[in-house]
Design a protein around this nucleic acid. Structure first.
Lengths: 272, 272
DNA sequence: CTAATAGTGTCTATTAGACAGTATGTT
DNA sequence: AACATACTGTCTAATAGACACTATTAG
């Protein structure tokens, strides 16, 4: 059939001409929180944490997953994760970036659903926002080993353990395939999504200022270093660390005392 | 309604419960090709090039776009760009990575279509593969300036010029919004997709070995440097360049002569 | 010989790693 | 006083930038 103009074509267009499917967006909400400490003098250790939601309905009933939901036809793609996160946590205007689009045919047992995952970051003050009763914060422990990695998520009374096998699939850019070889409690492909997010964050902290989205307005350099360390999974040397971040932060006239030791100057993120 | 098991739930599941839309994948196929030179002694200059396809039907009839097509319900997401590229170019087993998912509500005038863009790279030998008659290689000239960037795509008898306004939308990770302020010949949001791909490639060449996907098996270090230069849009110093790539390449016993000057040793990519 | 690129040597400047040393709060 | 962290100084090692120099071919 021939059309004389785009308008004419669009008027007679049949939207069922091509396969149709549903899309969702899933949100990895990461933060770094303080572990309780028994020694009043020691500064509290830090852990990464992630918000998970317990599924109330099939499929994967009673398992844990990352917050997510269906994209509406009249909703901009990036608005979808924002809306869902606001529904679950009451958080607005927080850092968010598109992570990856997962589209395996069998990733959802109901039907074909492609999902675009987003990564969101908040600082530990935002952590106190009221969250949906089905949602819970889990501490993350992510250790890489020779054959893959182990992901352990813990909450007060829940412990989720996932074994991941990493296979190098592309040598020039070091791209890995993650196969989940043990997982009883995480729904869909969300274990893979979480691992993808953790690795992205670990990479990006090295060459961007992304970490400041996980920091409160005022922070000490000691805290900042601890956040780097917990995300990178390794310890850093203080003088080298301070040299590198020196031009990203700005000294303030505020001071944080109270620990049984020399008080620390509070810094701010410098936007230059 | 209550279900006793996941099977029972799935049996009565109605796939129309949520909004349904179509998905496409678009492929940025980049390469670096030689410009013709009149001086027999000078080595040929290089340019980046991209494969575009002329649209034969509405919408955007007669405009140029990146190769793409609809995702089938039973097709893995990454298989879709591979299939489409094979249809258009007869290329198989080439480097491809997921770039970004574009999902603006109005990006396609027909209906809601979300598209996942992939970036593919080939070396200049693959460039000679037979391509679909609607497809054509365009040379890329991409210059950034204070307020944005200019993208000029040229082929034998076609010249496409796009003005892009870049606005910093996120300071910690230097994320920009690209607004196309002048474009008469590129369909859909593909100008934005191309710019996103160019910037991704420019970033990734710095911290990965991605460039070797654009090189033939044997190459001289001079050629390799020229490819870096054309992608980065700046000149590099030879000794520094050679130091940096020294442990990524492997000397062979082959030699390339024929230019009116000292012949050059051919190298291979070293996978370590 | 000449134009043009190939390839090396080296000096300097900058950045990163390591560790020692000093400073100062709370209990 | 002592613990624990805050913060600085400095020596060394590694990496990056700049430029000068030598080598080698086709015509």
């Amino acid at each position: 059939m021939e059309y004389r103009s785009e308008e004419e074509f669009l008027k007679s267009y049949n939207p069922n001409e091509y396969d149709r499917l549903s899309m969702t967006t899933d949100i990895l909400l990461f933060s770094v929180s303080d572990l309780l400490q028994n020694n009043y003098r020691k500064t509290s250790e830090k852990v990464m944490s992630i918000l998970l939601v317990k599924r109330e309905t099939y499929p994967f009933k009673d398992m844990w997953c990352v917050p997510g939901g269906f994209l509406k036809l009249d909703e901009e793609l990036e608005e979808c994760p924002k809306r869902i996160l606001a529904e679950e946590t009451n958080l607005h205007n927080i850092y968010m970036e598109q992570l990856y689009t997962f589209g395996a045919v069998k990733r959802d047992p109901r039907m074909r659903i492609v999902s675009t995952a987003y990564m969101a970051l908040i600082d530990k003050n935002d952590l106190k926002e009221e969250i949906n009763s089905r949602a819970k914060w889990f501490n993350i422990q992510y250790d890489e080993n020779k054959s893959g990695a182990q992901l352990v998520l813990t909450s007060d009374d829940d412990r989720i353990e996932v074994q991941v096998k990493k296979t190098l699939v592309e040598k020039t850019t070091n791209r890995y395939k993650y196969e989940i070889i043990k997982n009883d409690s995480i729904a869909f492909d969300h274990a893979e999504v979480i691992v993808t997010g953790l690795e992205r964050l670990r990479n990006k902290i090295e060459y961007t200022d992304i970490v400041f989205n996980m920091m409160p307005e005022y922070f000490t350099l000691g805290e900042l270093q601890k956040v780097y360390e917990v995300i990178l999974g390794k310890e850093l040397l203080m003088p080298a660390f301070r040299r590198v971040i020196a031009d990203k932060v700005e000294k303030t006239d505020k001071i944080q005392g109270g620990g049984g030791h020399r008080p620390s100057v509070l810094f701010k993120y410098k936007k230059k």
